[in-house]
Nucleic acid binder design. Structure first.
Lengths: 135, 135
DNA sequence: TTAAACCTTAAAGCGCACTTCAAGGCAAGC
DNA sequence: GCTTGCCTTGAAGTGCGCTTTAAGGTTTAA
């Protein structure tokens, strides 16, 4: 499979695939006789893994170190587990921050519906809410 | 409160606070007689709101448009609700992507413990797993 | 044989979100 | 009066993660 096809299959641009290879986020890719990249399923899966971790907010540098450790021949099980757990902790915190922001926006959205209620108390609460609408 | 104190309280650098004001992510800040910023609780809350949304992955530009709409005098309730819902959808998708990546890493972490099991079948499964350790 | 459509590399360019710098002002303490 | 420590502004610089460009090679099809 050429790089164009791999790009289509993964949604990652050809240039980005080359960039990932250069940065060692994916293993060295086999070449055809004339020097063109010949991408197989294994590489595709790696590209998708990189995409997923990038989308999860992992930097190129972290990802490179992470992959380096996992690709190493030596048995780094302990370090690998520690790294996995550290990365998990980072991502879980990120997820929780995101959830907090979602809750915040949901709270604001729910308070829009107050415009439909009419008791005195609710109108006063609404007024207070309106002033601080952004917070 | 001067900008240094506001920076300490929010964990946002003085330069970033100035930048946020320039980009209209926070309202124009009152000045003392000599022209120094005098930051109050309302501004602090805004800075924290901006920080939270930034951490949730919202761009400066999106945030600026969002805040512009919410600060407007006219009653943009419909547009505001639509914007809130759109932003919520983006963030929920982001959260789900993050969760998928977390699940992926957890799966890998759990498979490390297979190194302690010993039945033939499990060893064969482990072998297959080992080859694709990165995926 | 020439154009189209793919590929290669190295290097330069770009947008974002700040950070840092330069040049200067004000207020307090020695 | 001078140093310290805060502040101001505008402009330039920075790091990341690609994208684009330039210059060229190969293959296919008309």
């Amino acid at each position: 499979m050429n790089i164009k096809e791999a790009s289509t299959q993964t949604g990652v641009s050809s240039a980005a695939i080359r960039y990932y290879e250069k940065e060692s986020l994916i293993p060295p890719i086999d070449r055809t006789e004339v020097g063109n990249r010949d991408i197989d399923e294994r590489i595709l899966r790696r590209i998708r893994f990189v995409t997923q971790m990038r989308a999860a907010g992992m930097s190129i540098e972290s990802l490179r170190r992470y992959i380096e450790l996992f690709d190493a021949q030596e048995d780094n099980t302990k370090e690998q587990k520690a790294l996995l757990q550290a990365q998990l902790a980072v991502m879980e915190e990120k997820r929780d921050d995101l959830q907090a922001a979602i809750d915040h926006l949901n709270y604001k959205l729910n308070h829009f519906y107050d415009h439909m209620v009419t008791t005195e108390e609710e109108l006063r609460a609404l007024e207070r809410q309106h002033v601080d609408k952004m917070e």
